[in-house]
Design a protein around this nucleic acid. Structure first.
Lengths: 126, 126
DNA sequence: GTAAACCCTAGAGTAGAGTCAAGAGTCAAG
DNA sequence: CTTGACTCTTGACTCTACTCTAGGGTTTAC
């Protein structure tokens, strides 16, 4: 498929897709060139981009994602080191989740306060 | 207290603190000027910076934090709109947490795969 | 009274992640 | 055979959140 269709199907802009390519996030598996030099993507690329988005949403930088993929795909060399790497990232994510939940609790508490206050005001204005 | 001490107590660099000031994250409550034009911070500023850090870790931009504070501190105007705003942010955070957990599950699954594989390899090499 | 440590402003520079624009080639439809 | 939609490359630009530099004033310790 060409870049326009991939853009529509992935929800990423054409520019972003080309940018990811420059950063090394797409290889021959996902990207060929047709006769006319147009990019020609495989079906699996949609999924690839979704994974990139999710991983990015998890707080990884593009450079980290490249590294993650690189380690992952060279798994002739797969061993305990990759397990350790993933474990480390899982732990980092756990920390981020905890931070988010802390702010969430903070906001929820404030929210209750605001609601209580506005009810009081409402009652007073009765 | 002066900026050096605040920097040490907050864990933020002097430059960052001045940068936050430029962005409007510190007002007269937190920041005065002494005779010599040096910044003079109140005790509460340490807490303020901690709150900024936490909120930022939750994925808010500085501009959003400024807006959050502004709405919060003008709570002569406190009403259902603030509750709605906070509710919206809580929801956004919930989404981010869900995304993180998705990636976490993905990585954990892969991790199990790697471990299973390496155990198989280990067993084969017995 | 001077050196070290601290503070000031203004503005430039950096990294990450895009986004946009110019100028040109390709392709399908009418 | 031209028009409109699509694609190409290169390079400049944007935005966020810092970080650093230059050039200068202030405080503190000895």
């Amino acid at each position: 498929m060409r870049i326009g269709e991939l853009s529509r199907r992935s929800g990423l802009s054409i520019d972003t897709i080309r940018f990811y390519e420059k950063r090394g996030l797409l290889d021959e598996t996902h990207l060929r060139r047709s006769e006319n030099r147009y990019r020609d993507y495989s079906e699996s690329t949609v999924e690839r981009l979704a994974l990139i988005k999710a991983t990015q949403a998890a707080g990884f930088t593009l450079a980290e994602i490249v590294e993650l993929f690189r380690q992952w795909e060279s798994n002739q060399l797969t061993d305990e080191r990759i397990a350790l790497y993933l474990q480390k990232k899982c732990d980092e994510i756990a920390v981020k989740i905890a931070e988010l939940q802390a702010v969430q609790r903070y906001l929820e508490a404030k929210l209750l306060g605001v609601r209580a206050q506005s009810e009081t005001v409402a009652r007073q204005s009765d």
